[in-house]
Amino acid sequence: MSNQSAETSRMRGLMLVAGREIRVRGLSKANLVSLLVTVVIVGVLAALPSLIGGNEEDAAIGLAGENAPAMQAQLEAMGGFDITVYDTADEAERAVEDETVEAAVADGSLYSLDGVGNEVETKIDAAWQAASVQTNLANAGLSDQEIAGALTVEPLEFVTLESGGVHSTLDYFTGLVISIIMFMMLMTPVQYIAMGVVEEKSSRIVEILLTSLKPWQLLGGKVIGLGVISLVNLVAMVAVGLGVSAATGMLGDLPPGTAAAAVSTIGWWLMAFALFGTLAGGVGSLVSRQEESGSVLTPLIMSLTLSYLGAIFLLNAPTSTFAEVLSIVPPFSGIAMPTRMAITEVPAWQVGLSAVLLAAAAAGALALGSQLYKRSVLYTGSRMKLTEALRRAA
């Protein structure tokens, strides 16, 4: 019973610290405004492809003459046309003059007031050619079945000699958004953790807190609290991004698996945050002044920056050997793997291996960061060297 009571007491202390971080930082005006601005930016980015592409209306086309039925079938199969069939070529021509339709095809002529766009013209011409062939075959005495057989052509089989193939602009854009969100949602809380540790140490508050709490409760509570805040922000971004994509009709146009990759980003973020967050708390405890925190955070910031730059590189070559290695080896995999998953199909064994290695690295970082914090948080004076802290932690 005493063991259970002690365990409850330890967890209560951990949650008290976490709750304090959530109240102080999570509900602060700065965080709420930052969340609102970020969510709006994500929403705009998610809607951008639709805004750029625009909502093109169907082209109003009039048809008349012998080929009209066959041509109507061809244009309807292509899509993007609002078709009206007229009894005579004169009626079709008058419809163009009255601007009832944008253009009309009758007796081998394309009528328009001032021309049509290249894309529309190309489609109309292709439909005219196919409809003329179909009509000529019918006039030659072929049955509908024979005409269908003559016009049926097997589609090209697409064979890519290198795995992955060519990725569209939308693929690139999706991966870019995920990499940017991951980078932002790791960089900011990691810096907050380190600065919070230094602040408590420089003000000597940590000495008072340690009279009733253990070092691991202080560090763990700080990491959990800021992690909850960042997780809420991340979930909000993913939800808004997917919601806007669905509302604008772009969700179905995203690469297969993009939605799943976006949701799985939360899991990758959790592991990466555990890795960088606990290390940030550990190295932050090596210094006693805020102006010195930058020097101990530099290796972590550089690792995060290199992870982000690596993810940007693999957007152009997601199936290259370098991209595969980068998305498997921690800490780079925390950003690289969800980015890669969003733009190309990744073998299941690579995803599994990457997750296991990142989780193992996070566990190692948790052990190391907590030991650094425990042995150096009460040390005052000049900056403690990492080698000295490691010897003391051994």
Rank of each mutant, 00 (worst) to 15 (best):
Q191I: 04
K214V: 06
V166G: 15
M185W: 13
L218S: 12
G225I: 05
Q217A: 07
M195F: 00
M250E: 15
L161E: 07
I224C: 04
A236S: 09
I229A: 00
G221C: 13
M182I: 02
M187H: 06
L251I: 13
S212Q: 15
I178R: 14
L226Q: 08
T160V: 05
S203K: 04
L251N: 09
E207G: 05
I224W: 00
V240L: 07
I180R: 06
M250L: 07
E157C: 01
F158A: 12
L231N: 00
W216I: 11
I180A: 11
N233H: 03
T248G: 10
L234A: 11
V232R: 07
R204Q: 06
A247C: 02
I205Y: 04
G196K: 09
L251K: 11
L234S: 04
I181D: 11
L161H: 02
S163F: 01
G175H: 10
G221K: 12
L213W: 07
H167E: 11
I229L: 00
G221I: 12
G252S: 14
Y192R: 03
S230T: 15
M184Q: 09
Q191F: 02
A236T: 10
S202K: 12
W216D: 07
T160L: 00
L213Q: 14
S212N: 12
W216S: 09
H167S: 07
W216N: 13
D171S: 14
S230I: 08
I205Q: 01
L251M: 05
G175P: 05
Q191H: 02
L213N: 09
M195S: 03
